[in-house]
Amino acid sequence: MLVAKPGLDGHDRGAKVLARALRDAGMEVIYTGIRQTPQMIVEAAIQEDVDAILMSILSGAHMAIFPKVMELLRQNGVDDVLVMAGGILPDEDIPAIEQMGIKGNFGPGTPMATIIEYVRANIAPERLTQDLAPLRSGGAAFDTQESQQSQAAQ
């Protein structure tokens, strides 16, 4: 999980509460700190190889920042990461945000359990396998029991 605070807003209590709740749900949470540029968020997501990016934004700059994040993810070939947003997102912007591919847009008062359930239900379970197809079919140096099982599963 990457919990990020994009843009120039310093109110990160919500992000910290969320990070703590995800931790207590057994997840590993990388918290970036405040004032993240889209470049910083995408670079962190790549280096940490996260399953999901959760952006918390209260400043109203979401319509400027979110498209840049999505564009940078695309440019870097990151297409298997769940991107979510939360904070102050006006209802009229939600359709446009979802159009960008940002899902689960949670406003103030959302129970933590709702967010955790949403994360669990929506991260791509087969994230790791796409890079490994050549390894699994090649198989010469690779004859452990587990690999046979995972090949059978595919």
């Binding site: 749900a25 997840m27 949470v29 990388i30 918290y31 700190g33 540029t37 470049q39 910083m40």
Partner: peptide, 15 residues
């Protein structure tokens, strides 16, 4: 679970 916060102090290296 874990909260990994070391990146917060390393932002000057980002990019």
């Amino acid at each position: 679970g874990a909260i990994l916060g070391d990146r917060i102090r390393m932002q000057e290296l980002a990019g």
